[in-house]
Nucleic acid binder design. Structure first.
Lengths: 248, 248
DNA sequence: CGTTTCGTTGAAGAGTGTCAAGGCCAGTGG
DNA sequence: CCACTGGCCTTGACACTCTTCAACGAAACG
């Protein structure tokens, strides 16, 4: 009923040596707890660029920890409007939308070739009952997702196009940095249309604003390649200091 | 170290008889489980209109189940922009934002005199280890919040003012109905500015759109009092069938 | 009963969306 | 290797939605 021994062994090594440890695990877990955590991970799964990890309506039975790659999640309204709700990178946990109704409510699609750890949800429930540190960590991860979405709501509800883009670039920058990549130079794995969908803008607006940032010397853009020249400039924009008509 | 006995007794009765049972509890809990649940609730707390249940930065130690009343949650950016992230009514659980960092990240404020059950988080953690049904229910509630926020992102990211308002009214209508109130006639507890903040619109726009709905015979509005005359009309608007330039 | 908060409405303007044309780039097949 | 193709991106001109500013009216509150 459990995964075959070779698999568990294989993954034990992989999990406690995984360089995503700090992102995906609770800091301060005991070795013992980490062993319990490793029991969670049943298998790995590869998702090639363009393919889906899961789709809205699919039965929910696992969460997924991104090992490498890049994904987007999208929700669709009944009348066909699509909204990107997030982009996911290594160390992040996806699929939590499915817990509420045993069905996934969004599509999650790889934007580049991706590998995830499959974590069957019933095992999480089991381990949650016996390992307080893991249970607590899991709750924090879900809560963090709620807080993240509050931030997106703030962005969508109260920011202008330039502010949204600046916030978006800074967010990506910070996430790349915390994964050991450059914070000033990176490749956008998503299209302008996907950025626009996430930020509540049209792709033309995204393109225009990026061009404007470039002419103002804040960034360099060449297709999907971005270099941030003035993070402070971007931060100023996020804070509404741009043209500054806002003496509110 | 526990709440005084009289309090527990008092609440035991109150909790299993609470008419919010179906909203706030997992259906199909055993009587035994319900007793365990009742141990969770330490106290009640009243929050008068205009006062806060908690504020961003406050230490997190409890979740709150709304017994009666109406609240809003708001997040604030560093530069002072405010965004309403949700409105909460009887039977809903608030405060989950605080789990991730042991601090609340939003303000939650009563829009009318409100009473909540205070649920210390460390007790939730305790009970979560021993009562699978409650643990699972708790996970579902958090997941449902994530899904709800996806819906708000869809609204903020891809809908026009009329569509947002129509969706908002239908959502309220449905929530009132599931609490036994009229689905067609209710009082808005929040101001136009608060609706606007939630929907990413200015208060004038909210006012104008409501007036337009009224002249079109979809609703009646008189200040905070709203009567829905044509839910189907509103649904058509949400689906983008309004003027219908969208042959996309 | 005055004061304050909240709501409505109008006119003008800013910010994005829409539509359209063209450029860049990677992959494909000749 | 080159031309072709299709997807993605950029840019311009124009339309439209929503915001801004302003004035006024209505309700709530001490």
């Amino acid at each position: 009923m459990n995964a075959p021994a070779f698999s568990v062994t294989h993954l034990k090594v992989a999990c406690s040596n995984c360089n995503l440890r700090e992102l995906c695990l609770p800091l301060g877990l005991s070795l013992n707890d980490i062993e319990r955590l490793e029991e969670l991970v049943a298998t790995r799964k590869r998702v090639r660029r363009g393919e889906s990890l899961f789709r809205a309506g699919d039965k929910f039975d696992s969460l997924y920890a991104v090992r490498l790659g890049f994904l987007k999640s999208t929700v669709m309204s009944t009348d066909g409007r699509e909204q990107v709700t997030g982009f996911h990178m290594a160390g992040e946990l996806v699929g939590m939308d499915g817990i509420s109704s045993d069905k996934h409510t969004c599509d999650t699609i790889a934007l580049e070739d991706t590998e995830v750890c499959v974590i069957p949800y019933d095992r999480i429930e089991e381990v949650a009952s016996s390992v307080p540190a893991l249970r607590n960590h899991f709750h924090r991860v879900m809560s963090r997702e709620i807080v993240r979405e509050h931030g997106v709501m703030l962005l969508l509800g109260s920011m202008h196009a330039e502010e949204r883009l600046a916030a978006f670039l800074l967010n990506l920058s910070q996430r790349f940095e915390s994964r050991g990549y450059s914070r000033s130079e990176f490749v956008l794995r998503m299209t302008r249309a996907e950025i626009g969908s996430f930020l509540g803008l049209k792709l033309e607006t995204v393109s225009r604003v990026l061009s404007r940032f470039a002419t103002e010397g804040l960034i360099e853009v060449k297709q999907k390649h971005v270099r941030i020249l003035s993070p402070d400039g971007l931060r100023a924009i996020v804070s509404g200091q741009s043209g500054a008509l806002c003496a509110d």
